[in-house]
Design a protein around this nucleic acid. Structure first.
Lengths: 299, 299
DNA sequence: ACTTAATCATAGCTAAGGCCTATCCTTTAA
DNA sequence: TTAAAGGATAGGCCTTAGCTATGATTAAGT
C-alpha cells in the first residue's frame, strides 16, 4: 500500500527539484526523503526521478505520477478539513423522535429554545409510536427520542425531563367537572374514551383508570388526541389528557380539564438515546434546554 | 498525517458493520483494526463509530468521513494503476532530437523498424542544431538525441550508432567526378560550398577539407543540404555531403557523388542521452533497432 | 437463572520501518 | 588542488502496526 507521506515527498521533489530543499519543506532530513523516495521507486518498479548534481528532474513516469499524487493529497486534505468541520459537537443534523401524543403539544414549548441553544444543529422531527421509535433509534435512524419512559427502555440510556400530569377531560357540565379534590378514585365505574392500540398513552392512562375501577369504552378508539378531545367536547364521554395537550385549550368553553389531587397520575417524559451515543455534549445541552423551557409550564 | 490504511479500516467497518468481518476483509486481526480505528478517532478528535454488541454503526461524522475516505482511496487506487500502466518500459512518449543534416535522410531508414520494435512508444521528432539539442536534452525536454558525436558531449552518455561517410558532390562533368581513387588531398585548393554557421556538418566537413588544403567559399552559405545540393547541381561549386543525404539521389543526372578512398572522411553518428536516464531498456532497443536498420545501407 | 456464544476492548510483545546523525562519493567551482 | 555542494550510504533509535491471548459485556438458549 502506497503511503501519503511518500506522495508528499514526490510532490516536494517536483516543486523544488532539489533533495535538500524538498526535505526541508517536508521537515525531514535529506537522507530520509532520499531513502523514502528510492523505496517508493522500488515499490512501484519505476524510476521517478533523474538524479544529477546540478539538476534533479522527474522522469516522464514521475511527471505523470506527480499529477496523480497531487490528486490523492488533495482528497486527503479534504478528508481532514471535513473532519475539522465536524469537530464542532454542536453542529450537524439531529433526528428527534417523539410520540404523537406529545409532539404537537411539547414542540411549541421547546423548539425556540433548542434552536437558540444549538443554533448549528438541524433538528429533524419524527412522529411515531413508541415501538417504532425505539426500533429506529436502535437502527440509528433516529438520534434522540422524547417520550414517556417505560421499563423496556432500560437497555437504552435515558434522562428524565419532566413529569406530565394527566388531567381529566370532561364536558363543562359533567358531574366531575367542578368536583373539588378530584382524585383517581372518582373515576370508579366511569367509562373512559381511549386512543387506539399502540399509543402508549392508552396503556398508561388506562393503567391508572383500571386500577381506580374505571372501564374502557370499547365502542371505539380515537386515533389522535384531537379526535379524543372532540369526542369529549361533543359529550361522548370523558378521558384523561396529558397536561401539555390540555394546556393549549384551557380556555375551551365546552371542555373542562380537571386536575387530580395527589397522588397525581403522571407520565414521566424522558429523553432516550443509545448508550455510547457519540454526541453526548449535544444531548446534555438538549436535556438542559428542554428542562429550562418547561420550567414554569409544567409545575 | 492521516494514513490510507486507516481509511481502509473505516470503509471496511462501514461495509461490514462488524469489527471481526471488517478486519478479515482487510486481512488483519480484529484487535488491530479495532485499535487503529480508535487511534484514528482520537487523532481526529471525533467519534466515528458507535459500538454495540449487536449493532455497529457509524456516527453522522463517520458517515460523512467515509465518503471522503472513499474518495481518497479511489485517488490512491488511480495512482497505483497509473503506475502499473507506466511500468511497461516500452511504452509512453519519447522525444527524439536530430540535427537537420541527418533527420530527413536517416528517419526514412529507421522509423519503420523503430515503430515495429517499439510499437507502444510514441516518437516525437525534434529537429534542431546540436547546441540547442544538447540544451534541451539537459533540460529534459528531449529524451534521446541522434547526432554526430562531439567531445563536448562527454558529460552525457552516448552510444555509437554508425559512421556516416562524407561524399564529394560535384557536377557530373567536374574534373573530380570521374577520378579514380578519390582522396581528400584531391580537394587541395578547391573551393567548398558550406552550410551556414551553427550546423555541425560545416565544422566537421570543413575540418577535413581545411586539413586537406581546401578553402571555404565565403561568398554565401546554404541553410540546408537541399539548397547546397541544388547549388552543386547548378554548377556553383562542390561540397561534401553525408552519405545518407547523397544516397537518395544517387541516380541524379546532374550530380555525381564521389566516394573517398581510405582514410574515408566520416562523421560518427551517436545516440546521446542523459546519464541516469530512466528508460535504458528503451534506449538499448532503439540503439539495436537503428543499427540493424542501417546494416547494409551504411557499409 | 445459568451457561454459552458472540463481539469488541485491553494487554503485552515483536518486528518493521521511518527518521535521525554522521559520513562517503562525485561533481563543480575557485 | 582544494573546497563546496548535493545526493547516497551506514548504522542506530524509536515509534507503531501488527500479532496472540485474554478480558468484559451482552444476547440467546437451555
Amino acid at each position: 500500500m502506497i503511503k501519503l507521506r511518500d506522495l508528499e515527498y514526490l510532490t516536494a521533489i517536483d516543486k523544488h527539484k532539489h533533495f535538500g530543499k524538498a526535505a526541508q519543506s517536508c521537515f525531514v532530513s535529506q537522507p530520509t526523503l532520499s531513502g523514502q523516495l528510492m523505496k517508493l521507486e522500488e515499490q512501484l518498479g519505476l524510476q521517478l526521478v533523474e538524479r544529477h548534481r546540478r539538476n534533479v528532474m522527474l522522469t516522464p513516469a514521475g511527471e505523470q505520477l506527480v499529477k496523480e499524487a497531487r490528486k490523492v493529497l488533495q482528497a486527503a486534505g479534504q478528508f481532514e478539513s471535513c473532519a475539522k468541520a465536524l469537530l464542532d459537537p454542536f453542529a450537524g443534523d439531529l433526528h428527534l423522535g417523539l410520540i404523537p401524543t406529545l409532539a404537537p403539544y411539547l414542540l411549541p414549548h421547546i423548539m425556540a429554545d433548542l434552536n437558540t441553544a444549538l443554533p448549528n444543529i438541524n433538528f429533524f422531527l419524527h412522529e411515531n409510536q413508541t415501538k417504532v421509535l425505539l426500533q429506529q433509534l436502535d437502527e440509528g435512524k433516529l438520534d434522540v427520542l422524547i417520550l414517556p419512559y417505560l421499563e423496556e427502555m432500560d437497555k437504552f440510556e435515558s434522562y428524565q425531563l419532566f413529569d406530565e400530569p394527566l388531567m381529566l377531560a370532561t364536558q363543562k357540565n359533567h358531574r366531575l367537572a367542578n368536583k373539588k379534590d378530584l382524585s383517581l378514585s372518582d373515576l370508579h365505574d366511569e367509562k373512559i374514551l381511549t386512543l387506539a392500540d399502540g399509543h402508549c398513552l392508552k396503556d398508561q392512562a388506562m393503567g391508572y383508570c383500571f386500577s381506580a375501577g374505571a372501564k374502557e369504552d370499547n365502542s371505539f378508539q380515537a386515533t389522535s388526541l384531537e379526535t379524543l378531545r372532540h369526542m369529549v367536547a361533543s359529550g361522548m364521554g370523558i378521558t384523561l389528557l396529558p397536561a401539555l395537550a390540555a394546556q393549549g385549550n384551557l380556555a375551551s368553553d365546552t371542555i373542562h380539564y380537571g386536575q387530580f389531587q395527589a397522588p397525581v397520575p403522571v407520565r414521566g417524559i424522558s429523553l432516550v438515546i443509545r448508550p455510547n451515543y457519540s454526541r453526548m455534549q449535544c444531548v446534555r445541552a438538549i436535556v438542559a434546554s428542554v428542562r429550562k423551557s418547561l420550567n414554569g409550564i409544567i409545575t
